[in-house]
Each structure stands twice: as structure tokens, then as C-alpha cells.
């Protein structure tokens, strides 16, 4: 299989890339890691007239913590950069755990965090973590930059809120209010398959009290499920068997799974509940140990 013909540009600056997108009025597509786009080109699900390869824009290859704890992930930060990152290992457990579960190890050397979020696959791992962590996408267009909250960024399956002449240059994760804890669990039939169900949980803790709670689910609905409201039952509480049970119930109710070859709807909902309980109990245990 091979893609249909396209013109190709490989700019070295963001301004140049945005100018090319602007000139081509919606007929150009951005190529970052290419681990979703190239297969789509080969299957001819996508046939853009022009590809704007951003891999030579070295200024986008970073992930870093601001002094206030804000995490910034540049558009060329690869999945494996986060998987092996010393920066996020302790400060962002939800992201660190998800990083090792994205696709397979070889896809992870190439695919990018921001590209994956832009691709807006309802099964995507990073979109779930972004919702749970209340992340934002920074878009640069011809008239400057704007920030788009993750909950507004994905407008539908494989559709995002970027204008044709905007480039997603960075993902921003706001600092935790207190200590950041959390986790990411995914059930897949084999490495690289789409998730049967996956759960992202991100909590901010002040002592043993939850001050902010975020949760999102993938694989159990037509889009990434925003379960932030469901998990908010934990805010102001400590993690006990009772509060964990209540949160797990509420989150499982927020799931909207369908029966398919990966399992029945009931089974997937059960997995969601089990995973939430597992992540929250794990946090409770390690908090007890630390205290």
C-alpha cells in the first residue's frame, strides 16, 4: 500500500509551517510522528494535497516543567521521551503510567503526544490523560497563539478544534494544587491493539484530603468519556473503602460501552469499576505508607 500523491514541505520554523498551512487553505495536513497519519494515507482514508512535515522544527522537541510546576510538552515530544522521562516520573504519575502503554515500543519512538491528541481517536490514551489532568493545547496561527482547553479541543471522533491555518505547538498541564497522584490502566488483548477499556485518574492531595479529582475513560464510548464530574464525589474527602467504592460506581455509570468483539458492555463497565478501584486503592495504600 502507498499513499496518493502529495506535495511535501519540511519547514524549520513554526512561522514558516503556519504560513504554508495558511497559504493552502485547508488542503495541507501536518505530519508529526506519522504513526496514525501515514497508515491513514496508505489506506487512502486521508488524501491531502500537501504534507507539512514538522519534524525539522527542532524548537518543538521538548518537555519541561516551569518553576510553578506547569508541564509543557512540545509538538515533537515522542511517546518514548515521556516513557523514559526523569522529569515527569514522580511529578506526573498519570502521564508516566500511560506513556508505557501507548501503542507498542517501536511506535513510541516516533509518535508524538501532541499529534496523538490532535488525531482525536476516541480510543486514544493521551486524550484521556489530558481530560483527567485538565490540560490545554496551545495553537499557533497567523495572528498569534491561543489556548484551547482539552474539553473543547476534541469536537468529535478524529476531529479537533484547530483552524486550518493553526499548528498545535504545545500541550500544557497545569500544576497540581498540592501533591499530584494518579494512575493509568488499560486492558488490551495484545500490545498495540485498541483498548478494551482504559482509565485515567489524576488527583491533587492536601495531606490525605483530595483537593481536585480528574478522570477520563477510553474505549468505552463513541468518544473519550469525560468522567471529571463523576469522580468529583471524592473532592474534600479522604480515600477510604467507602469513598473509593462510591467514586468507582459513579465513574462506571459514566461509561457508555458497547458490546463488540472485545467484550460485552457489562464486562467493559465492570473493567472500568475494577480499574478505578485499583488505581484509587493503590494511591490510598502508598499515602498510608508515606504517612
Amino acid at each position: 500500500m502507498y499513499p496518493s500523491r502529495f506535495a511535501y514541505d519540511a519547514p524549520t520554523t513554526v512561522a514558516e509551517a503556519v504560513a504554508i498551512l495558511d497559504r493552502n487553505g485547508g488542503e495541507a495536513k501536518v505530519l508529526a510522528g506519522g504513526q496514525s497519519l501515514v497508515p491513514m494515507l496508505k489506506l487512502r482514508f486521508a488524501s491531502p494535497e500537501r504534507l507539512v512535515d514538522i519534524n525539522n522544527i527542532k524548537a518543538l522537541d521538548y518537555h519541561r516543567l516551569d518553576p510553578d510546576g506547569t508541564l509543557r510538552i512540545g509538538a515533537l515530544c515522542r511517546h518514548e521521551d515521556l516513557e523514559f522521562s526523569e522529569i515527569i516520573k514522580d511529578s506526573h504519575p498519570t502521564l508516566a503510567q500511560a506513556a508505557a502503554l501507548v501503542a507498542d515500543p517501536i511506535v513510541r519512538t516516533r509518535g508524538t503526544f501532541v499529534g496523538s491528541v490532535c488525531h482525536a481517536d476516541p480510543q486514544g490514551d493521551w486524550a484521556a490523560t489530558m481530560i483527567a489532568l485538565d490540560g490545554r493545547i496551545v495553537a499557533q496561527g497567523p495572528n498569534g497563539r491561543r489556548e484551547i482547553a482539552m474539553r473543547d479541543f476534541v469536537s468529535g471522533p478524529f476531529t479537533n478544534a484547530l483552524a486550518y491555518n493553526e499548528l498545535a505547538v504545545e500541550a500544557v498541564i497545569p500544576p497540581a494544587k498540592g501533591k499530584a497522584v494518579g494512575g493509568y490502566l488499560k486492558l488490551e488483548r495484545r500490545v498495540g491493539d485498541f483498548a478494551t477499556a482504559s482509565v485515567a485518574v489524576a488527583l491533587d492531595m492536601n495531606g490525605d484530603v483530595v483537593t481536585r479529582a480528574g478522570c477520563a475513560l477510553a474505549g468505552v464510548g463513541g468518544k473519550t468519556i469525560d468522567a471529571n464530574e463523576a469522580i468529583s464525589v471524592l473532592v474534600g474527602k479522604t480515600l477510604t473503602a467507602e469513598s473509593i467504592e462510591a467514586a468507582a460506581e459513579a465513574i462506571a455509570d459514566a461509561a457508555d460501552p458497547r458490546t463488540d468483539h472485545r467484550g460485552s458492555a457489562d464486562y467493559k463497565r465492570h473493567i472500568v469499576k475494577t480499574f478505578v478501584t485499583r488505581i484509587l486503592s493503590g494511591i490510598a495504600r502508598s499515602e498510608q505508607k508515606a504517612a
Binding site: 506519522g34 504513526q35 504534507l51 512535515d53 518514548e80 519512538t109 516516533r110
Partner: peptide
Amino acid sequence: TVLFDGRPIKSCTMLAVQAD
């Protein structure tokens, strides 16, 4: 799978022009 600047990649999922 081949090594691209030392890291493994799937060469069916990269354009030849990108290897320049």
C-alpha cells in the same frame, strides 16, 4: 523495523523523504 538515528522505527510508516 530499522534503526533511524539509532532508535527502532517501522519503515513502512515513515516517508523516505523524512530520512534525508
